[in-house]
Design a protein around this nucleic acid. Structure first.
Lengths: 187, 187
DNA sequence: ACCTGAACACCGTTCAAGT
DNA sequence: ACCTGAACACCGTTCAAGT
């Protein structure tokens, strides 16, 4: 709050004429950031590509604001119009792609959980997996860390995000087909 | 720190004879909690089942300590022996299941990202998706929230976690097969 | 309506002084 | 070696007083 007040050239206490609490500010910021999330693929691209574009832009936006993630993950959509609009467009995209209505929200939540967790991971220091003095007691892991696949730009978090996202998208798509084929969900 | 000191019947400043900082305490706590994560499936069960058991127990442990997640997600494994041991057993399980070494760490990171994000989701209030006054402007989403599939025990977070985890596991398995079949990774 | 400045309760942490 | 108590810098927030 004091940093924000300084940026505005105002005393911290002045902020409380405009918001009820710090939580309020975070809610406004979250809704503002949702404008930067790309949902343009839904309606034009096939479902897997639309989801992929959405997920990458969603992760990138919140990577730059990782302290917000614990707040956003638990934030009710009530009173966050832009966030709600994103969910609406997302839902339409899923339904148009043939998703059964009961699975849409669980699928979105699963994707978001992966995105939030991955946004954290980007903020992690590069040497997070340095085993140090304990390397001897974890030979397979130490070797796997050295051998891990890195993308062209060298960011390990991007390799993990790409692998997981592509896996999750194809896996969810398979789950959708299984659900449709199950006799208990016929009709 | 003051709460911990009170629990120990001691002044807060006394803690600094045993740890360097609050961050130190969290690291010790994290390593302690890793004892409760179930890696017993690796070596006995097929890879998908072993991963599934591990992921559920991992999520459950950190669901009960969600304030720890932002810390753990960014915590170096250096000096966390029990955590490192978990990664070692995990890596052995992946390699035994035929995973190519370069993909092991990205796959583990992807699964962990999903688990951390999902552990947050469990902590979210039940009414997080109540659209309230804005329901009219998001008809498809509002309907999907009402229609969403709920498990027998009624916890929406569990439905999303099950769907996402099963999707992620089968999707990662498919990625592993694709990698092995690609000509550039032959040998 | 909106601002300031003093004040409050609460953090993590340091340090001199004790045993 | 380990503790206490005072102190410090730093939070978010309240409130009386101003314009």
């Amino acid at each position: 709050m004091s940093a924000l007040a300084k940026r505005l050239g105002v005393a911290p206490s002045a902020l409380y004429n405009h918001v009820k609490s710090k939580h309020d500010v975070l809610l406004l910021l979250q809704d503002h950031l949702m404008n930067r999330v790309d949902v343009s693929g839904f309606g034009t691209l096939p479902w897997p590509e639309a989801v992929r574009n959405w997920a990458w832009s969603y992760r990138d936006v919140f990577t730059q604001h990782s302290p917000l993630i614990p707040v956003i993950a638990v934030l009710p959509v009530t009173g966050a119009p832009r966030t709600l609009q994103m969910y609406e467009e997302l839902t339409r995209g899923f339904l148009d792609a043939g998703w059964p209505e009961p699975l849409v929200v669980p699928a979105i939540v699963a994707l978001e959980s992966f995105i939030f967790g991955s946004a954290f991971d980007v903020a992690a220091p590069e040497d997070i997996f340095e085993t140090g003095e304990l390397a001897d007691s974890s030979p397979h892991f130490t070797s796997a860390v050295r051998a891990r696949q890195l993308p062209a730009d060298g960011a390990p978090a991007d390799a993990a995000f790409r692998l997981g996202l592509d896996g999750l998208i194809s896996g969810l798509d398979a789950q959708r087909r299984e659900w449709a084929d199950a006799p208990s969900n016929a009709g």
